[in-house]
């Protein structure tokens, strides 16, 4: 890419991004800061398009702006209802500390920018290598091939991170209802009736698209999660008998399927995640569908922000060996 007619755009977009980030960081009203942050992420998606990374653009809009934005707004409401509304200003620093930090950050910026001149003029990426092996990978879209096959191990651990986030959040707190009572607005109900099928359809479309064009499990899952959240906002809830083991099973289903597919390799004398050639396509497809379902539920669970309260909270005491019980 060389500067062309788009040069003005390429100078303006980063400048606007930096300005939005600065405003979001310094605005003393936190609600405003979060809204600016969401705007920042939406513009960031535009930058990804410009950098020819459509998959990242989709993920940024859906996860960066959508999920993270919702998470921040939900947390802000809860924090303010618990601790009151506060304005947030930077700490009053001693001048020496300010000068020192400023100098360090500026020096880091200068050093990093100066080192960029040493980047090779003709870098060799892995693009050609991915293209050469694309036919064996079981998918036709390079990014999906990297995610689910060439570097599938990263993705397996990444799903573990998502699952871990839910376990950590459930460990911290019980779920607090979003709204004291469901919003009874005919507009919202009508909107939901229209949006839910659209979201479901687009999620399915994105997932199908991922095998040969930008799209895939994570983007589809965040659309599905958006649908689930809309349903929650308008008062839908999981029946209590479903919020125990059935919910947990659905949450881990994608990860378990991925893990099971991964160990076919070592059990048959191959490496981890080395699928038998004939099974590559169906295995990846199955893993991707189940992952989408589980990730959608995981993302929804992170926004709900606590363990379900409907189910029996704890198992009964395990053993009478309670001689060492706390104090």
């Amino acid at each position: 890419m060389t500067p062309g007619p788009l040069l003005l755009f390429d100078l303006l977009l980063p400048a606007v991004l930096l300005w939005l980030a600065w405003r979001s960081l310094t605005s003393s009203d936190l609600f405003r800061a979060v809204i600016l942050f969401i705007a920042f992420n939406l513009l960031l998606a535009l930058a990804w398009v410009r950098l020819e990374a459509p998959d990242v653009a989709l993920a940024e809009a859906a996860i960066g702006a959508g999920v993270t934005g919702t998470l921040l707004l939900a947390a802000l409401t809860r924090i303010e209802s618990a601790a009151g509304r506060r304005l947030s200003r930077p700490a009053r620093w001693r001048p020496a500390a300010l000068v020192l930090t400023g100098t360090a950050l500026l020096a880091a910026a200068a050093g990093l920018l100066w080192s960029l001149r040493l980047l090779p003029t003709m870098p060799g990426g892995l693009g050609p290598l991915v293209d050469r092996h694309l036919a064996e990978s079981g998918v036709d879209h390079p990014v999906t091939a990297v995610l689910l096959n060439f570097r599938g191990y990263d993705t397996l651990l990444e799903v573990a991170v998502l699952l871990l986030a839910v376990i950590a959040i459930w460990c911290l707190d019980e779920a607090v209802p979003f709204l004291q009572q469901p919003l009874e607005s005919p507009l919202l109900t009508g909107f939901n009736r229209m949006m839910l099928p659209i979201l479901l359809l687009s999620a399915g479309y994105l997932l199908w698209l991922g095998s040969h064009a930008p799209g895939g499990a994570f983007q589809a899952a965040s659309l599905l999660a958006a649908g689930l959240l809309l349903a929650l906002f308008s008062g839908a809830s999981l029946p209590a008998q479903w919020s125990g083991l059935p919910l947990r099973l659905l949450l881990v289903l994608g990860f378990l399927a991925f893990l099971a597919a991964a160990i076919i390799g070592p059990l048959t004398g191959r490496a981890l995640l080395h699928y038998p050639p004939a099974w590559v396509k169906p295995l990846i497809l199955l893993v991707e569908w189940l992952l989408t379902l589980s990730i959608a539920l995981i993302l929804t669970a992170t926004v709900i922000g606590g363990r379900p309260t409907g189910s029996r909270p704890y198992p009964p005491p395990a053993s009478p060996a309670a001689e060492g019980r706390q104090r």
């Binding site: 990374a53 693009g127 990014v143 570097r151």
Partner: peptide, 11 residues
């Protein structure tokens, strides 16, 4: 474009 960094950034 090189798909590998795209996949890494998605992760």
């Amino acid at each position: 474009p090189d798909p590998v960094p795209h996949a890494m950034v998605l992760t």
